[in-house]
Design a protein around this nucleic acid. Structure first.
Lengths: 101, 101
DNA sequence: AAGCTATTTTCCTATTTAGCTAAATATGAA
DNA sequence: TTCATATTTAGCTAAATAGGAAAATAGCTT
């Protein structure tokens, strides 16, 4: 739980997720949308990846990042469940993840 | 959005919310459950209050803190909504808050 | 008023985090 | 191989955060 909230406690990182929600992107493409230098973006992506909410795929010399939306929503619903029946219901209705990837 | 995630990006603060989910408590009662000194708890409570997820009521020389569960869930569903239809549905079904308190 | 208890505020230190530049790594192209 | 591009890692500084102790504030109770 700590990793996901630490990851989301950053405006640039939340913005990165918004971009990735539209389509997978390379680090450079993401960085083009920010004032920040690429190494900083790269580190933000590492934080998001450690939290499980993005996935990286090597594509030649590029690295393509994509959102793992079930991980994002799943973790937050998991946190919310004890506070809210709706969240528990949504989790229950969710298809169980097979260890693919 | 920033305040809520910053607030939740702390294990002690998440634990405080768990306690308050059971019943309202004074600062001292909360502090009894932690190794931390009371001033630190008091500061964590201030962060949670700034994020809108707890409310404080003066009760004589005590201060009673309580969870504002709709604020906690509402903000997180609000964040989730663009990523997940379920969250949007839950928000829509939620009774609109009147400016009470 | 004086003393006691509960809480917050202030001030300080240690740790973590964000962002930068420069260097290292990895891949593709000539 | 050599050059160029994409990304990550290292090393640094500045800013933010966490926690403690001590002082300040607020409300009882005598």
């Amino acid at each position: 739980m700590d990793k996901i909230f630490k990851a989301l406690a950053s405006e640039p990182r939340r913005r990165i997720l918004e971009y990735l929600a539209v389509e997978p992107m390379t680090v450079g493409e993401i960085a083009d949308n920010f004032e920040m230098a690429m190494p900083s973006i790269s580190k933000h992506l590492a934080v998001l990846k450690a939290a499980g909410v993005v996935r990286e795929q090597k594509r030649g010399q590029y690295v393509l990042y994509s959102l793992v939306v079930e991980a994002l929503t799943g973790q937050l619903y998991g946190f919310l469940a004890p506070y809210c029946e709706d969240a528990q219901r949504i989790l229950d209705a969710r298809p169980k993840r097979r260890g693919r990837d």
